[in-house]
């Protein structure tokens, strides 16, 4: 039993971080039908902003518990500033275009955002671990875990259920569902699809930035984070089925389990484990675990 506890806890805490990296990507694809290659940049920008805001709080000797608020605030700030602007200036022109065009445009955006981060934040690593230190650690099964790791798991669960509630039980969610089901029909009955697209894209940016912000206290942020996140996010989205939020959650668990098992038992397979899992799933279910050829769900 003692041997299984670390496997379970490591899988859950890894899955939480992986889920945050992927859920925004899958949401944006679901609503906008856009493969957003720049998604990883929003993750790293969220991380940089959160690190900067938390560092400001610490440097001004403000209440350290404000750093938790700062994590959420940073993600919201990134979403409000970048979401509507990028959707209306760039992403909007890709609707209905081929996936190759979408990928080229969003890849260009990714390169621009990566360079902008380098210009603004420099090339050094940023760390701000106040939230992690405030929460302390616990010994479970003979292994010391950060309570913050468990906090991440709780946050991931909250986001899964929060998104579910938003989509299924709110007016906005029903409008989004209508747009996803039939964009033209929704427009013809008076749904402001442009507004829905801006909101959905900004929500995707928020989720990516939140993932980056929540990762900062344990991982820090350095140039290159965006690219790594993007690759992993695509693998998770492909396993779960592009556009499937519950699929992203399950896929994050699968990828995390594959990585954890590799690290514990076959460390040389650590780097390939997530992609091996993706290959196996796609061989059996080419549209992902929750994906389907004709149906689209959110």
């Amino acid at each position: 039993m003692n041997a299984i506890i670390p496997l379970v806890l490591d899988t859950l805490s890894s899955a939480a971080l992986i889920f945050f990296a992927a859920v925004g990507l899958t949401l944006v694809f679901n609503v906008l039908r856009v493969l957003n290659v720049a998604h990883g940049s929003f993750y790293s920008i969220g991380a940089y902003v959160a690190a900067s805001v938390c560092a400001f709080i610490v440097s001004r000797h403000l209440n350290p518990y404000l750093s938790f608020v700062a994590l959420l605030f940073s993600a919201a700030l990134v979403a409000v500033v970048l979401g509507p602007f990028i959707e209306s200036t760039l992403i909007r022109w890709t609707y209905g275009k081929s996936e190759a065009v979408q990928i080229l445009i969003t890849f260009g955006l990714f390169l621009i955002l990566e360079d902008l981060q380098r210009m603004i934040f420099g090339v050094q690593s940023f760390y701000e671990d106040t939230p992690m230190r405030l929460m302390g650690s616990s010994s479970i099964g003979g292994v010391v875990y950060l309570n913050y790791q468990m906090f991440l798991v709780a946050m991931a669960i909250i986001v899964v259920f929060g998104l579910r509630l938003l989509i299924k039980h709110s007016r906005l969610g029903r409008l989004v569902t209508a747009v996803v089901a039939d964009r033209e029909m929704a427009q013809s009955i008076g749904v402001d699809t442009n507004k829905i697209f801006i909101l959905a894209f900004s929500l995707g940016v928020f989720l990516a930035a939140l993932g980056g912000a929540l990762a900062v206290p344990t991982s820090g942020v350095a140039p290159g984070l965006g690219a790594d996140t993007m690759v992993l996010a695509f693998a998770v989205a492909a396993i779960g089925g592009l556009g499937q939020i519950e699929g992203a959650a399950l896929a994050a668990l699968i990828v995390a389990l594959a990585r954890v098992l590799a690290i514990y038992f076959v460390p040389s397979l650590d780097a390939v484990a997530p992609y091996a899992a993706m290959l196996i799933v796609l061989l059996v279910r080419p549209y992902g675990l929750f994906g389907a050829i004709t149906t689209r769900r959110i």
Binding site: D10, V144, P267, D270
Partner: peptide, 22 residues
Amino acid sequence: VAELFPKLGSPNYQTEISRLTT
């Protein structure tokens, strides 16, 4: 007793730390 080679540029070592501890 353990040999781990995480990818260069990995931001997160939590699982590796658990493995080393165990």
